[in-house]
Design a protein around this nucleic acid. Structure first.
Lengths: 242, 242
DNA sequence: CGGCCTCTTGACTAATATCAAAAATGGTGG
DNA sequence: CCACCATTTTTGATATTAGTCAAGAGGCCG
């Protein structure tokens, strides 16, 4: 099985999936839809019962504050679920914005539950992925609460690199990244102006360069040291279930 | 069924549980254990397969940064689970500290899974609770990222009040609270000194008084306004499943 | 060409941390 | 009951971080 979806690739890092299980997973990828950048795909109204698997492109999930500022909770990259929780529960407390044009597979609650029933190991793998997402939110909270702006940015860029590597995007040296400095500001709890300064400073220190939609790690080791980046919450280093 | 556990009370707000279901829930409360304040009940080693239901007392879950600072991710109050995620998965990424002496019921993975299988509605209710916990972490992230120290504190104290009310502790006017200002600082991403100043200022403005282990809402409406507190992510206002 | 993003920079300001130290508080052993 | 110790709360002075305001520069698109 060489040509996997990003989700298949990601889950395979958690659980060794059989061809049959991968086939069920592929079955969930019917119902492709395209969404254009910028227009929110909110999870309310009629599509309440569906989640999406992101096939290509980037999305962010965020909450708007009454004063107009927003906090980006997480970014979704290919292989990630959008709104998985709101399938099982009905709380859809935040919004989703496609950052670029995206392709996503709509997954109906019924299909998902059937897949869970038919292939419990697949269900386990998906629970794993969901749990990792939650761990990332926790790590994000720690970053915003306890890291200064440099370390926060460094940590963020490294984490994203690791996540992308897991789905086969980018390399050790860097990756393409469509985020604007406003996205970074909203995610990191900083002002856009300050984001710009932090990026410049990291670049001038020879640690990392973010320019023209591309992140280049100039000195990954020193960057990881500055960020105190420990990727154990992301790496489950090889399938845990065989 | 008058005399419920805090967990039973909380879940009943989500899902109307039958006597049989409440009985299964009560069955999970065997194996009472006591833990003393301050000594971490880490979720590693032999007890990897167990979670706890907190029966009395307060606990916090936190992560320590390499530089020694810590970020409290959440507080657990009676009726909350400790380490629910680490039963299903094996990642136990943060630590738990009992803030006062606590009583907790140990729940083995096998018992929990059996309960889920026997009483699916109970499983649904527990998923709901877990999802609410995640929503709280997200709200916490938003607070640390996008609220100034006053609003952060105000929001925190109000949220805690709502949570306590749900399990029948405290009243509209306030509640007993064993947290020190250091706990508040670690949770809110502030320094302890600043926490003190913020509390003084809120007290002097006649909004809320936190003193001698007791939180008193002096003017709940103005406090909620300052905090931009919207409790919809906590209130599911009455059972959703009948 | 003109408008709209995004990025960049400078000057100034506000929020919060840090350092230091004193007052309460609570528990403990004598 | 008292003296002592550790913890928690409180306050002041000062330092640092990051935000706000303002403005210009470069691209991209219609």
């Amino acid at each position: 099985m060489t040509d996997q979806s990003p989700l298949g690739r990601k889950l395979s890092a958690f659980v060794a999936l059989s061809d049959a299980e991968l086939a069920v997973l592929a079955g969930l990828h019917q119902r492709r839809r395209v969404f254009v950048a910028g227009r929110d795909l909110v999870h309310q109204g009629q599509s309440k019962q569906a989640a999406y698997i992101l096939a290509s492109g980037w999305v962010c999930s965020y909450k708007i504050q009454p004063d107009g500022s927003r906090q980006i909770v997480d970014f979704q990259i290919p292989g990630d679920f959008l709104g998985l929780r709101s399938v099982l529960l009905r709380t859809s407390d935040h919004s989703f914005e496609p950052i670029v044009d995206i392709e996503a597979a709509e997954v109906l609650a019924s299909d998902l539950l059937k897949a869970f029933a038919d292939t419990p190991r697949l269900a386990t793998a998906i629970f794993w992925a969901a749990s990792r997402d939650e761990a990332m939110v926790v790590e994000h909270l720690v970053g915003v609460g306890r890291r200064d702006s440099d370390a926060r940015m460094a940590h963020f860029l490294l984490e994203l690199g690791s996540r992308l590597a897991l789905v086969g995007i980018g390399s050790k040296d860097g990756y393409d990244c469509p985020l604007t400095q406003y996205h970074l500001a909203d995610a990191l709890g900083l002002s856009a102006v300050h984001v710009n300064r932090v990026l410049r400073q990291l670049r001038e220190r020879g640690l990392v360069t973010f320019r023209d939609g591309h992140v280049s790690f100039d000195d990954r080791d020193r960057l990881a040291e500055l960020a105190e980046f420990d990727s154990t919450y992301l790496d489950h280093e090889g399938p845990l279930l065989k």
